[in-house]
Design a protein around this nucleic acid. Sequence first.
DNA 1: TCAACATGTGCGGTCTCTTCGAACGGGTTC
DNA 2: GAACCCGTTCGAAGAGACCGCACATGTTGA
Lengths: 304, 304
Amino acid sequence: MLTEDELALLEAIRETGSLSRAAARLGRAPSTISHAARQLEARFDALLFDRRRYRLQLTPAGHLLAQEAARLMHDVARLTRRVKQVAGGWEDRLRIVTDEILEFDTLLPVIRAFDKLESGVSLRITHEVLGGTWEALREGRADLVIGATNEPPAISQLRWAELGRMEWVFAVSPRHPLGKATGPLSQQVVSAHRSVVVADSSRGTGRGYGVVAGQATLAVPTMRAKILAQCDGLGVGWLPRHRVSTLLKNGALVEKAMADPREPNVLFAAWRGDHDGRALSWWLEQIRQPRLARRLIDGLPLPG
Amino acid sequence: MLTEDELALLEAIRETGSLSRAAARLGRAPSTISHAARQLEARFDALLFDRRRYRLQLTPAGHLLAQEAARLMHDVARLTRRVKQVAGGWEDRLRIVTDEILEFDTLLPVIRAFDKLESGVSLRITHEVLGGTWEALREGRADLVIGATNEPPAISQLRWAELGRMEWVFAVSPRHPLGKATGPLSQQVVSAHRSVVVADSSRGTGRGYGVVAGQATLAVPTMRAKILAQCDGLGVGWLPRHRVSTLLKNGALVEKAMADPREPNVLFAAWRGDHDGRALSWWLEQIRQPRLARRLIDGLPLPG
DNA sequence: TCAACATGTGCGGTCTCTTCGAACGGGTTC
DNA sequence: GAACCCGTTCGAAGAGACCGCACATGTTGA
């Protein structure tokens, strides 16, 4: 393998173009450097230095070694940092999976605050649709899940905390055929119109919120897209009340009373008890603050 | 940095789960291992081993180090191979740039033969359109250029060899308006019809073969596409005679006499004299064989 | 042309660091 | 509780790194 001394040797020889100067730079005797250089060649079983001329030079092989060794050295330095970091109780990385109904924007201030800690932990934030968050936790793809819906399933070592409730509203564009309908709408009436659903293309399986069997659907990638689609009159469906509050106020959407109202969803944060670290603890501490939890669930109302 | 001994130490401890067994496996005294382990911890300034329980275990930091160090070790082994290879006179990699009018298929047998040498040299074969090959050589993006057209430009240390001549034929689809024209065609007559040109989208600049100013053009990505386009009657232009020989025979294309015939192109192989290596020498040796050069230039006639 | 200087290498001695064996304390197993 | 396993400490022995010196060779400047 390569010692940092050997690397420094190559580096010094390459830059100074001479063994004596390299020796001076490294604070060693010239004979030591000469000895070490020969030893290095013996180790790699290759001519690394061209000694034919007065001042020796690196051969192409020597150049390659010096150059790549510098890269390796860099890798080792980074590895050292990571090891110290993990030894200090910080995870190497923290994988956070949010449900898509949470808006990434609301996480930004927390991420910024986390960055200020300069922990070195690399964050990886992705999102999933519907049950995907629980799956991610079960399959070990996530260290922390934020905004998971429905009841926590049976996962060994599961820990969780309630974030709060998300209320839903059935709303349509005023230009939509249902826009002028009066009185509570039955499922039968609704099912005659296309519904807009959020689906995750990457996993292939078609999931959707509150879809009636046989109903035509328009699958869109995000809740934001669903809201915009419904504003456009492209379909109908349930929307998070708080995120469409402005749109309801200015008439871009109209709320419809339903024969079967939708119960509010309880949102959870969840993690596994067998992995702990300072980054996870910090995030849990933040998320347990009611103000932040409220903001995460409410999201940002779309401006009209 | 990490010595291979230290890496072997981590590996042995991780697998055996005990210092004594690791010592036995490595053929050292237990005291040596204990000492080395502590020294490793001091070096990284991190707790790598959990000594609280009876048999010590790797901490998360230790696991990370062992795992990543194994990866590093692998990198070093690969680097060692590459250094030996370069020291043996083989280049680290050979970048071959062909003109697009050469067909990649005709290179395949040569590549297979090169692979049989098991030199370890990684081949990188790309193609360029028109003057792009010379540029690639000038800008140091290529170690060897095959099939460069036109005269060799002034490039320092340039070396070249003639491959042979490529003859051209002006041909159109029988369903094209020019298909029934008689007698030699003048430039003026031709310029009234759209010409098909080969252009390189990746470099942005529009280049083309023998295009008359003001003439409408259809730019296609490859010579193969140009042939197919002209068979389809989408345009007219010069084509390599040998590659369309079958198509001329079966009537998919008809040759037209021209008032200004096109001179055959001389194709060159070129490289720089200041980089030599066994891989380059081998390729030059192959290319200088007249039979191979002929096959490269003629390409594969498209079946009707 | 010759002297002064610079460069790379070989040798013997010194010094540091690794390694070992022996002894000890604590934990596990039967 | 005896036998065994495990990790640690300590002094001694050995290996390898390093230095100073001498020497051959090549370069530079007067």
